[in-house]
């Protein structure tokens, strides 16, 4: 009950701050912008994947037209990205693009030997039946990158709110009064964490609703919420630790910004796959989120829950210990 009073007060504090409301509204636009980025990325990727090739060989033009990724034209002039000229079965390929030249080279070989037994395409291809129009690039970029960003955005921003509240109390010297109240240190942490977690869930739900307006649906919402709860406890405890260790808002902000930059680098930037490193990346929370939101749940997902639950426990334990040290209170 005592925790509730503290949590209620914290919630009221946060909601009465104009700048948070402003940040909240901006997040809405960021989330919507993210979905639009997904659309435009897939649009550009589709255009970029299609190369236009002109040729003076009508048979070859028909052959090339079977490839969905090449727009083929019959022309006696240079046109598009490359021009293939067939003069008595010597092929001249005019292009500046090395990759395109290689692609066309295989295409020409495939075409040239199309009737000769051993060189016909060695693997039988069966057409994919398309029931509805789904753009693979959109699915890929949306579910593997943008949805995790949308889900983690409130978590990251709430870390700032939390540290503002704690360091603010330290600066205003009201934290000592809070410590004098009949609440244990652990209860104080819980009381501080509860409202931010609540707001975090509210935002996550809202953003999920927003993206669902554009037909981006996710699976296993219940499991996702549990996983996010664990992540929130972990990250918010880290935020508590940072704010206890810093003497003013500016310092706490610098720590948090560095921490978040490091995290987003690990979570969202493509990294080369190098043995051990790529194995570590497999346990990134983003991978967990992607698996929960897009796969049918099975037992293998438990390892993510266990890893982050243990880390969250450790983090909250450290946070409590830091809070118990009185020197971290005196500036």
């Amino acid at each position: 009950m005592k925790i509730m009073a503290l949590a209620y007060k914290e919630l009221k504090d946060i909601l009465s701050e104009k700048i948070y409301i402003f940040g909240f509204l901006l997040q809405l636009f960021i989330v919507m912008g993210i979905v639009l980025i997904g659309f435009s990325y897939s649009y550009i990727a589709q255009i970029e994947n299609k190369t236009s090739v002109a040729t003076n060989d009508t048979e070859f033009a028909k052959f090339l037209a079977q490839d969905e990724e090449i727009l083929c034209f019959y022309s006696k002039n240079f046109f598009g990205d490359a021009y293939v000229q067939n003069i008595e079965n010597v092929f001249y390929v005019y292009t500046e693009d090395e990759d395109l030249f290689d692609t066309l080279k295989t295409k020409i070989e495939e075409y040239y030997f199309r009737y000769e037994g051993p060189l016909r395409s060695p693997i039988l291809k069966v057409d994919f039946i398309k029931e509805r129009r789904v753009v693979p690039e959109f699915i890929e970029v949306m579910y593997s990158l943008l949805v995790p960003i949308v889900l983690l955005l409130p978590v990251f921003l709430s870390m700032n709110m939390l540290s503002d509240s704690i360091v603010g109390e330290k600066e205003r010297k009201t934290f000592e009064i809070l410590l004098a109240s009949p609440l244990t240190r652990f209860e104080i942490i819980l009381g501080k964490l509860a409202p931010v977690i609540l707001l975090g869930f509210f935002q996550v739900s809202l953003w999920l609703f927003v993206i669902s307006r554009k037909n981006v649906y996710i699976k296993n919402i219940f499991a996702l919420y549990i996983f996010l709860l664990i992540l929130m406890i972990l990250f918010f405890s880290v935020s508590v630790i940072f704010s206890m260790l810093s003497s003013n808002i500016r310092e706490a902000n610098i720590y948090l910004t560095l921490f978040m930059m490091f995290l987003s680098f690990l979570m969202f930037i493509p990294l080369p796959s190098l043995g051990f490193f790529s194995n570590v990346i497999k346990y990134s929370p983003v991978v967990g989120i992607v698996k929960i939101t897009t796969n049918v749940l099975d037992i293998s997902i438990l390892k993510y829950f266990i890893i982050y639950l243990v880390s969250a426990m450790i983090a909250i334990f450290i946070a409590k210990n830091v809070l118990e040290k009185d020197e971290s209170l005196r500036l």
Binding site: Y143, S278, I281, V287, I289
Partner: peptide
């Protein structure tokens, strides 16, 4: 080097085992 050697990239971490 990875690009030139034709090894495969881990794309964004979220794509791991996607």
């Amino acid at each position: 080097e990875t690009l030139q050697s034709g090894k495969f990239f881990s794309t964004t971490p979220g794509m791991n085992e996607f």
